[in-house]
Amino acid sequence: MAARFKMSKKGVGQLLRSPMIQADMLFRAEKIEAAAQGIAPVGGPGDPHSGRYKESFYVKTTARGGRRRDRATATVGNRAYYARWVEYGTEKVPAHHVLLRAAQAGGD
């Protein structure tokens, strides 16, 4: 006799918000954060912000993330006010894509 499976949407939702999944998201985000810190540009000797970008990465987790607020998520970001310019570049400064490259590498 073939096995039967009946999915419980409530059960799947509880699984997606569980501490186990949240811990895994945190683990992955911390690996991405470490990779981003490893490839982050650091200014030269005359730069007043030398090292600030590299030190400004953070990780935050929540059990109510995603588009529908129905799953555990972790976010890696940077608190430096000029982080978007480092990531995407300007007319004078090339884009470094630090978080993009760290996420693509998967934190390896």
Rank of each mutant, 00 (worst) to 15 (best):
A3D: 13
A3P: 04
A3M: 11
R4Y: 12
F5W: 13
M7L: 15
S8Q: 09
S8F: 08
K9I: 07
K9F: 06
K10F: 10
K10S: 14
G11P: 01
V12E: 07
V12D: 04
R17I: 04
P19H: 07
P19N: 12
P19D: 14
P19T: 09
P19A: 10
M20P: 00
M20E: 14
I21A: 03
I21C: 02
Q22K: 15
Q22W: 00
Q22C: 08
Q22S: 11
A23W: 00
D24R: 14
D24L: 11
M25W: 00
M25E: 06
L26P: 01
L26Y: 07
A29I: 05
A29T: 08
E30M: 12
E30N: 15
E30P: 03
E33M: 14
E33H: 04
E33D: 09
A34C: 03
A35D: 10
A36M: 05
A36D: 06
Q37I: 04
Q37R: 13
Q37S: 01
G38E: 05
I39G: 02
I39E: 03
A40W: 01
A40F: 05
A40E: 01
P41L: 08
P41N: 07
V42F: 02
G43R: 06
P45M: 08
D47G: 05
H49W: 12
S50W: 03
G51M: 10
R52W: 10
Y53S: 03
K54D: 01
E55D: 14
E55K: 13
S56R: 02
S56A: 14
F57H: 06
F57I: 03
Y58R: 03
Y58G: 06
V59Q: 07
V59F: 04
K60H: 06
K60P: 00
T61W: 05
T61C: 07
T62Y: 02
A63P: 08
A63T: 08
R64M: 07
R64D: 13
G65Q: 01
G65C: 01
R67A: 12
R68G: 12
R69N: 13
D70P: 04
R71E: 12
R71P: 02
T75Q: 09
V76K: 03
G77F: 03
R79D: 10
R79N: 11
R79I: 00
A80F: 14
Y81D: 12
Y81K: 09
Y82Q: 06
R84C: 00
V86H: 01
E87Q: 08
E87P: 03
E87T: 07
G89A: 09
T90G: 09
E91F: 11
E91Q: 14
E91K: 15
K92E: 12
A95M: 11
A95K: 12
A95Y: 10
A95F: 09
H97R: 15
V98F: 01
L99M: 15
L99F: 05
L99Q: 02
L100W: 09
L100M: 09
L100P: 00
A102W: 03
A102P: 01
A102Y: 00
A102C: 04
A103Y: 06
A103G: 07
A103M: 05
A103D: 02
Q104I: 08
Q104K: 14
A105W: 00
A105S: 12
G106W: 05
G107H: 07
G107T: 04
D108M: 09
D108N: 08
